[in-house]
C-alpha cells in the first residue's frame, strides 16, 4: 500500500494549498485549546472547517481533526463538543491523546475513525495495542524518539497503522508530558495547546544580537549571521557550569527524506509533515517535495535518491542551523 502523505493546515488557504499540491490527508485544529497549535488567529472556525472538508472531499483528500490536548474536569464538555463537531462535519478521523476522550468518541460516534496522537506518548506496541483493544484506535502517530529498527518492531507486532513524522520542527520531550513551557509561563501546552504562547514571547534587536525571551526569561541571543529557531525553552541556550550552549536540544529540523525507501519497506502507513502554525507558502513548498518523493519511492524502491533541489528547498524553510534524521537513524537504542 502506498504511503499516505499527511500535511498540516492552520487556515483554509493552507488546506487548499496542501490538497492542490498532492496531500492525501490534511490535519487541522479548531480555534481553541482542544489542539496543540492554539495560537492567536490560527485554525478553523466552523465555517472554514465545513468549506475545508468540502474542498478536500471533492478532490479525494481526507481531513483529520487534531483534538490532541488534555481536557480537565472543568472544561471537559468543550472537548466532547469538538468530537461531536468532527462527526457532524464529516471529518475522516480524529487524532486523540486523552483516553477519556477516546472512550467518549468510541461510545458516541463509533464509526468516526480514531487515531492516537503523538501527544499520547505511546512508544511500544504493547501500549498501542492497549489503545487498540480498549478504544478501537486504527492508527498511531509515533513519538519522535524511536530508531527505525524500533519502529519496525512496533509495526511487526500491531494491527494498528503506524504514522511517522517525516519533516518539520522537533519537539523532543516525551511528547504530551513536557513541562518546560509551563515552568516558565504557568500554562501547560498539554492542556492549553500552546508551547511558548505568543503573549509571553518577546524578541528584541539589541547591540549584542536578537534576544528571545519567554515570560521575561532570556532563552537565546542570536548573532547577526545565526539562523534563528522557535522561542521554545527546549531550544534555548543556557549557562551550565562555565559554558553557555544548547543544553537540551539544538534548533534543528527533522528531515527523513533519505530514509524513505526503508520507511516504505517496513510498511509505514503514513508520513506526517509538521507545521500547522506556518503559512500556506510553506505548506505548498513542503507538500510538493514530499508528494514527488513518495511517488518516486513507490517506483524506484531502494534505488531512490532524493533530488538535490528537494533537499535545498526543505533546508530553506527549516528551523535553526541544521537538519537531522532524528532518532530514526542511530546505531544505539
Amino acid at each position: 500500500m502506498a504511503i499516505e502523505l499527511v500535511c498540516p493546515a492552520g487556515s483554509l488557504p493552507a488546506l487548499k494549498t496542501a490538497v492542490d499540491a498532492g496531500a492525501d490527508c490534511v490535519y487541522v485544529g479548531l480555534r481553541d485549546a482542544t489542539n496543540a497549535r492554539n495560537f492567536t488567529g490560527l485554525n478553523f472556525d466552523d465555517r472554514a472547517l465545513a468549506d475545508g472538508v468540502a474542498y478536500a472531499h471533492a478532490r479525494g483528500a481526507k481531513v483529520l481533526l487534531a483534538l490532541n490536548t488534555y481536557p480537565r474536569s472543568d472544561n471537559w464538555a468543550r472537548w466532547t463538543a469538538a468530537v461531536d463537531t468532527a462527526a457532524e462535519r464529516g471529518i475522516d478521523a480524529v487524532i486523540l491523546a486523552d483516553p477519556g476522550l477516546m472512550r467518549y468518541a468510541l461510545r458516541t460516534h463509533p464509526s468516526l475513525r480514531r487515531h492516537l496522537s503523538v501527544q499520547g506518548s505511546a512508544t511500544s506496541y504493547e501500549a498501542i495495542n492497549f489503545y487498540h483493544e480498549q478504544f478501537g484506535i486504527q492508527r498511531a502517530v509515533l513519538p519522535r524518539v524511536l530508531s527505525l529498527a524500533q519502529v519496525e518492531q512496533v509495526i511487526a507486532h500491531t494491527p494498528v497503522e503506524i504514522e511517522l513524522f517525516g519533516f518539520g520542527g522537533l519537539c523532543v520531550m516525551v511528547e504530551g508530558r513536557c513541562a518546560l513551557s509551563a515552568y516558565a509561563t504557568g500554562e501547560s501546552p498539554n492542556c492549553n495547546g500552546a508551547c511558548s504562547p505568543g503573549k509571553y514571547v518577546r524578541w528584541e534587536q539589541t547591540a549584542a544580537g536578537m534576544e528571545a525571551r519567554v515570560n521575561g526569561i532570556l532563552i537565546d541571543r542570536f548573532a547577526a549571521d545565526e539562523r534563528a529557531g522557535y522561542p521554545t525553552l527546549c531550544k534555548g541556550r543556557f549557562a551550565v557550569g562555565s559554558e553557555t550552549y544548547y543544553a537540551i536540544e539544538e534548533p534543528t529540523s527533522l528531515n527523513t527524506l533519505e530514509l524513505l525507501p526503508e520507511i516504505a519497506r517496513m510498511g509505514v502507513a503514513a508520513i506526517k509533515i509538521e507545521g500547522r502554525q506556518r503559512s500556506p507558502a510553506y505548506v505548498g513548498q513542503v507538500t510538493r517535495v514530499w508528494r514527488q518523493a513518495i511517488d518516486r519511492v513507490a517506483h524506484e524502491g531502494d534505488r531512490f535518491r532524493p533530488d538535490a533541489a528537494w533537499l535545498r528547498e526543505l533546508a530553506r524553510v527549516s528551523e535553526g542551523q541544521s537538519q537531522t534524521l532524528g532518532a530514526y537513524h542511530r546505531p544505539w537504542k
Binding site: 488567529g41 504562547p197 503573549k199 510553506y282 524553510v317
Partner: peptide, 26 residues
C-alpha cells in the same frame, strides 16, 4: 514566502507584542 522561513533566516524581525504579530500574520 512563509513568515517563519524568513524569521529563521533572520530576514524578518518582529519586536514588541508578539501576540499582536501572530494575530496579524495568521
Amino acid at each position: 514566502e512563509d513568515a517563519d522561513t524568513l524569521f529563521f533566516g533572520r530576514r524578518l524581525l518582529m519586536e514588541g507584542d508578539t501576540e499582536l504579530g501572530l494575530l496579524v500574520k495568521n
